[in-house]
């Protein structure tokens, strides 16, 4: 009974958070809703005996990744409401719901297919052994440093590269090159942005007013 309650509550949290993420007009709200979902997922991990992952989920996702999102939002000053209209791709929204429904349907069909395995997957026999001595993190650690040691080392390299790449991408270069063909001094002056180049093809004239407005609202 308890596990049903746990499941229902956490599922409600997860779905509320998820819908909140995609429905909130303000990116900050979306980020906070994402935290809610992540916590719900962490609860379900615990419910399924994955204590280590639950902890990692909270620490890495909620603690690091979402914080990073918030940092970026604050840094860029884009924490203003986004108009949720259809934008330029008019047919995008119905198609999006159609695609979502398609994904849901296909996954559900494959789940309800019964005993037959859709992908042909079988258990590979690394049984989870209960008991205090064989906690899940112990087993994960053993696997990581035996069977998956190469992949593990590769992730280390991947993370290093990611850090270096992020630094390279995000650093401000002095006298950053400006594409003269696409730099529109008129618009730049209207937006009171000095020495901030306009990237390549700027939006069509009709939206420039909105952007100027949004920008001044955002505060530099």
């Amino acid at each position: 009974m308890v596990d049903i309650i746990v499941f229902v509550v956490s599922a409600a949290i997860i779905l509320t958070g998820a819908i909140g993420v995609i429905a909130a007009r303000n990116p900050v709200h979306s980020a906070l809703m994402l935290v809610m979902t992540l916590f719900g997922v962490a609860v379900q991990f615990v419910a399924q005996e994955a204590h280590f992952l639950a902890a990692v989920q909270v620490i890495v996702y909620a603690g690091a990744i979402v914080i990073l999102f918030l940092f970026v939002i604050m840094l860029l000053g884009v924490d203003k409401a986004e108009e949720l209209d259809v934008g330029r791709l008019t047919a995008q929204r119905p198609m999006a719901f159609l695609a979502g429904a398609g994904v849901l349907a296909s996954v559900l069909v494959s789940l309800l297919a019964g005993d037959e395995s859709i992908t042909g997957a079988r258990e590979v026999g690394r049984a989870i052994i209960g008991g205090e001595d064989e906690a899940d993190f112990r087993q994960i650690g053993r696997l990581l440093f035996t069977d998956y040691v190469l992949a593990f080392e590769l992730t280390a390299i991947l993370l290093t590269i990611a850090v270096v790449g992020a630094v390279m991408l995000a650093r401000r270069v002095r006298g950053e090159a400006v594409d003269a063909d696409t730099y529109l001094p008129e618009q730049a002056r209207r937006r009171r942005i000095r020495e901030t180049p306009v990237l390549l093809r700027t939006p069509v004239v009709e939206t420039s007013d909105d952007m100027a407005e949004a920008n001044s609202g955002g505060g530099e």
Binding site: I22, E82, M95, F97, A99, G100, V103, V107
Partner: peptide, 14 residues
């Protein structure tokens, strides 16, 4: 599955 679908829809509409 539902969570995944919500993610898909969000990716496509935002």
């Amino acid at each position: 599955a539902v969570l995944f679908s919500i993610g898909v829809v969000g990716l496509l509409i935002r």
